[in-house]
Design a protein around this nucleic acid. Structure first.
Lengths: 361, 361
DNA sequence: AAGGGTAGCGCAATCGATTGCAAAGTCGAA
DNA sequence: TTCGACTTTGCAATCGATTGCGCTACCCTT
């Protein structure tokens, strides 16, 4: 291996006239060929060494790898993707059922998205982020058929479960954050919403609340499941307690109106289960406007347990979703699907976090 | 558009029979060659027709384009990127000065990020999202040298202005959201923080506040500028008013401690200017804990004017940053730089939004 | 009718990594 | 020393779009 062994070319694969670089050391290798020349092997060997595929002697592999390290060389992703017939991109898509931008800037999405982004980047993939307002049933197939991604993560099925189902029938690499529905054929990751709903409700009941309100729009699947949990708890542990449901909008202004109107007539309410921390915040606001003390007169519990739950006055009790585990699962399952495996949906255990909005400390 | 003018295929724009296949041979063209065969031209011509480059007759161009539309064909991004020597990806990177994850899930970043993502997607580029904790001065050059992106947007220079400067010296396609600093050689987009600081402070002064506190850590450049505005206003319009600065942490728990400690000893404070809405929220919390009425005893104003400002109790006055214009500018400038143009930094005008935390309604 | 000009299009090389196949090299056993 | 049986490595095709260069018509002059 010592003599360089230039056969025919006389060492002149490129720029023989010796311009460009005087010494044969050259600058940083720009591609796998350059590195091959430096190492005195062929491009194929470099490829195998770096990828760790095929049969290659440990000696050459390490030699090439250390050269790559020395020159801080990384093979082109684009070329690899072209050759391997993939795009190197994962689509992350947020369908906004009815509402517009507010929804997207909800801290909940940000947190989940940030976690997902990290996991995807760790695997060397890019992220194509899009939020779509599903005007027509084609919104998802358009994204899928664009051929710009190797797989898709959908954050929240909203009311689009049918559309997702119909695409999942022919497009496999697809995972969804959200509720696990009976009729779904796609793979989903989400909290056990029903259990979470039950936990929150039992918490309120155990603190003596007897007139409960559920704040949330059950036309969204996750929320419907939480409502079921709410009803379960009332039925099993309610003994005389009553509950009602107020379908609160996601848009904050609208939500405040909805809630204010409700509270003005429902002055006996002593426990509120809001299906998101942001709705719970709005409820706190409306209650304080009406001089109803929290938690003395009314106890409030939210859902998600985001940062903001710790910063309201009083601090908000909430049902915590394990978003880290959720992001892990979403990305892990998606890559398994891309690899052709078949995988099962994942359901995460929620956890209750009691703070000042339900317990006097 | 009436006659359709189907020449050889005898088909129509879509699904002629019941099948959509059958009639025309071949399924969807998978690449430019397939489409060329269908159109009876060479791949080169298809490329030129679709890209709108080179000399091509209007007739063939339209013919090919309509074929592409008919088959819903889109040329491979990967191959184009390889050939054109680019990656088709924009890096968006959030340096976290000292703090960790909390920072990233701040609603402020989410909102800006979402807007940026849209603008990038509109141009057919992908987004590579990374948050980095700058342990060493190499964090940025590593990202840049990885060669995975055509340009970078940095959200917030944090205390890393030097590092960014040193990279900007050799890497041009780089724009930064944040303060405009005297010594910076890179291109930035941000609000006029000094003016914003002045506006907030004058607002408090005009409402009769005389003992002002500035909550924010001035080691972050944006915040230092707001602090300057605070001092400007005190000097020009203060007549007897005094001000002080409490360097509040970004991490919420820590922030609450900082603020609580301060409020316990500074019981004469009657006006607080917090440099973010999240800090302002924490201040509200601490004040209410201490039975200091807002806005009666103490007036509070925040910065950013995010969603949450409307949902605190009382609703938060704030200095609004025009993030939509900011995202537009960031992306526009970046692509201009990628195209080789030289561009100037952009400074946005902030705007004051008065709500219940400063004005009794 | 011949020659210059030009618009329109195709040929083939190219971007950089991967991989099936074959050639070269290594080692031990007969 | 020779002959498999492997193990390593190189050759060359390939992924799909782009583009410099050159060829072919066709139009207009003269």
């Amino acid at each position: 291996m010592g003599g360089k062994g230039a056969k025919k070319t006389g060492g002149s694969v490129k720029a023989p006239g010796g311009k460009k670089v005087a010494a044969d050391k050259a600058q940083k290798p720009q591609n796998i060929q350059d590195l091959a020349r430096i190492a005195g092997v062929s491009a194929a060997t470099v490829s195998r060494a770096l990828a760790g595929t095929g049969n290659i002697s440990a000696a050459t592999r390490e030699k090439i790898r250390s050269l790559a390290r020395e020159y801080d060389f990384r093979p082109s992703n684009t070329a690899r993707n072209l050759r391997m017939g993939r795009t190197g991109t994962i689509g992350v898509i947020v369908p906004l059922g009815h509402e517009k931008t507010q929804h997207f800037s909800d801290p909940f999405f940000m947190r989940l998205l940030a976690l997902i982004a990290d996991r995807i980047a760790e695997r060397g993939y890019d992220l194509l982020l899009s939020k779509v307002v599903p005007h027509d049933p084609e919104w998802l197939s358009r994204q899928v058929d664009s051929g710009r991604v190797d797989g898709m993560i959908i954050i929240g099925q909203s009311n689009q479960s049918d559309v997702i189902n119909s695409v999942a029938r022919y497009y496999d690499p697809l995972v969804v954050w959200g509720a696990a529905l009976a009729e779904q054929i796609y793979c989903s990751v989400g909290s056990d919403n029903r259990l979470g709903g039950r936990m929150a409700t039992e918490h309120l009941l155990s603190l003596g609340c007897r007139k409960l309100a559920f704040f949330g729009d059950p036309s969204v699947p996750e929320i419907e499941q939480r409502l079921e949990g709410f009803r379960d708890a009332l039925r099993d542990k309610g003994k005389g307690a009553v509950g009602t449901n107020l379908p609160v909008h996601f848009v904050p202004e609208q939500a405040l109106e909805d809630i204010s109107g409700f509270l003005d007539m429902a002055d006996k309410v002593d426990g509120i289960f809001a299906t998101s921390d942001t709705i719970a915040m709005t409820a706190l606001q409306a209650l304080l406007d009406r001089r109803r003390a929290v938690p003395k007169d009314v106890k409030v519990i939210g859902f998600d347990d985001l940062e903001i739950a710790r910063r309201t006055v009083p601090a908000l009790s909430s049902i915590r979703q394990d978003l880290e585990a959720g992001a892990d699962a979403l990305v892990e399952l998606l890559f398994r699907k891309i690899a052709g495996e078949s995988v099962d949906s994942v359901m995460l255990k929620p956890q209750i976090v009691a703070r000042g909005s339900t317990t006097c400390d």
